[in-house]
Amino acid sequence: MVLERVWKGLLAVAVLLLIVILALQTGLIADPWADDTRTLHVLDEDDDPKAIIEVELADTPMERYTGLSDHDSLADGEGMLFIHASEGERTYVMRDMDFDIDIIFIDANREITSIEHARAPEPGEDGEALEYTGHGEWVLEVPRGYANQTGMEPGDEVELVAE
């Protein structure tokens, strides 16, 4: 009788642990011990940084959906890095955006594949209709014009610095 209760208790703990692990991996709940910011370097052909950007990580479905729409602006050297589980074609929209951005698509090899210069929707305009598509596993958003200002271009490599 006692042994049966111990086994049931262990089974309940194991099931609960499995549920928490799956919820963390799928992004249903945020990792409470994770740091949400990192430093990203865009490297030139000599592996020297042509841009150093402090990025907020958007690595859960909710964070990727919200994106920068809850921000009033970004300063040069700031951005948001959207992290997807795999490489593929991605379409980003300007939902609820108040400012223009550059959208930089980065493949699984950490190479910039394309850069889009996105404008914020006009008053009364549906931001969902402003679509920008590219190929990548990561998508970096920075203030509009920052990619040109720093000389970023397709083929540049990026490096996410461990903090």
Rank of each mutant, 00 (worst) to 15 (best):
F105K: 01
S114L: 07
D107Q: 06
I103R: 00
G79Q: 00
D100A: 13
E111L: 11
A120I: 02
D44F: 04
A129D: 15
E122L: 15
D98V: 07
D102H: 04
G124A: 08
D70P: 01
E131R: 15
D98W: 03
D126T: 07
T113N: 05
I103L: 08
L81S: 04
E116S: 11
S86K: 14
D96H: 12
A85E: 14
I112Y: 02
I106W: 04
I101L: 13
T91F: 06
E45M: 08
P49T: 12
T39H: 10
M80H: 04
E89S: 14
L57H: 07
D126Y: 12
E87M: 10
V93M: 09
D46E: 14
E125C: 09
P123H: 01
Y92N: 02
E63Q: 15
T113W: 05
A51H: 05
T133F: 14
I53W: 05
T60P: 08
P123L: 00
E131I: 07
F99V: 03
L43V: 09
H41K: 12
M62V: 14
A118K: 00
R90H: 13
G88T: 09
L130K: 08
D70G: 12
E87V: 09
I115G: 03
V93S: 09
D96C: 06
L74R: 00
G79K: 00
I83D: 05
T91R: 04
T91L: 06
P121I: 03
I104C: 05
L74T: 01
R90E: 05
A108Y: 10
L43E: 04
S73Y: 12
D48C: 10
P121F: 01
I115C: 06
R110Y: 15
L68I: 10
A118S: 12
L57K: 11
I52Q: 13
A85S: 14
T133P: 07
R95H: 14
